[in-house]
């Protein structure tokens, strides 16, 4: 028998291995992914048709409802993809597989990064699916050009990472698949209480104030700008800063909640 050499575990290799494991599971169990692809496609098709005249209101900045809705559907799909790492972790916690990983000499950061990597990679699929359907079947435009596509993808990835970290925190605390239901309610409430569905000009009452100060509003504006016009730094900066702060906050939240796994 060979002798396994003693060395320090490469945390980057661990992260990649955990990401790959998640993707492998997704390939073998497509039902894990189908809802997060079908849902945003359904969303962009249904809402672009039903609310085609809504863009005539102030604040939409486009003459095509699909341009508004496609970005919204992409970001919702990404947020839903963010549940992936949490779902995998909840399953692993319930069946004990998570303890197998914790019993290895790996850092919590490497483990969490791997799970986020899985969620982020998942987010590329609904984003691409929505773009294909929007441009091929619904006549969407991208006035922002290639930069608009790049910003849309990066925002989708960012949203998936934030939501993944947020959901992981809840899952680490509750240690059960049931925690995903709570995570979804909080996650989608945060998304809907923003300018995702309608511009600030069309929102009234307390919803207006919540949407105005919701950091997700800036992130959605950043991801959507290429569908509505040129990509500008003025529109990108608030979204970028909000996303960075959300990433820092959600990382700290996930890392703090990880300590609760052994309680």
């Amino acid at each position: 028998m060979t002798t396994a050499s003693t060395r320090n575990t490469s945390q980057l290799h661990v992260t990649v291995a955990i990401t790959k494991r998640g993707l492998m599971r997704m390939r073998r169990l497509p039902s894990l992914m189908i809802p997060s692809i079908i849902m945003p496609i359904f969303f962009v098709v249904a809402f672009s048709g039903s609310f085609s005249s809504v863009v005539e209101l102030d604040g939409y900045s486009t003459d095509k409802a699909v341009n508004w809705m496609a970005a919204w559907a992409i970001l919702q799909g990404s947020a839903f993809s963010g549940l992936g790492g949490g779902g995998l972790t909840a399953t692993d916690l319930e069946n004990g597989f998570f303890d197998r990983m914790r019993a290895a000499p790996i850092t919590p950061s490497a483990l969490i990064s791997g799970l986020v990597g899985y969620s982020v990679t998942r987010a590329v699929l609904p984003t691409t699916a929505v773009l294909i359907v929007s441009f091929a079947a619904l006549d969407a435009d991208m006035p922002g050009g290639l930069l608009g596509f790049i910003v849309a993808y990066l925002t989708a990835i960012g949203i998936a990472a934030v939501m993944s970290l947020f959901v992981l925190g809840i899952v680490f605390t509750m240690k059960t698949l049931k925690s995903l239901a709570i995570a979804q309610v909080v996650m989608f409430s945060t998304m809907f209480l923003s300018v995702g569905q309608a511009p600030l000009e069309a929102i009234q009452g307390w919803l207006y104030h919540v949407a105005k100060y919701n950091p997700i509003t800036h992130v959605i504006r950043m991801g959507r700008q290429g569908f509505l016009g040129d990509v500008t730094w003025a529109e990108t900066q608030p979204g970028f800063i909000s996303l960075a702060l959300l990433l820092i906050g959600s990382s700290l939240w996930a890392r703090a909640c990880y300590q609760k796994v052994d309680i």
Binding site: S5, R7, V14, A17, M101
Partner: peptide, 12 residues
């Protein structure tokens, strides 16, 4: 996967 978690190289 277990080998990666314990820092064992791909070949080994």
């Amino acid at each position: 996967l277990q080998a990666v978690l314990h820092g064992i190289s791909r070949h080994e």
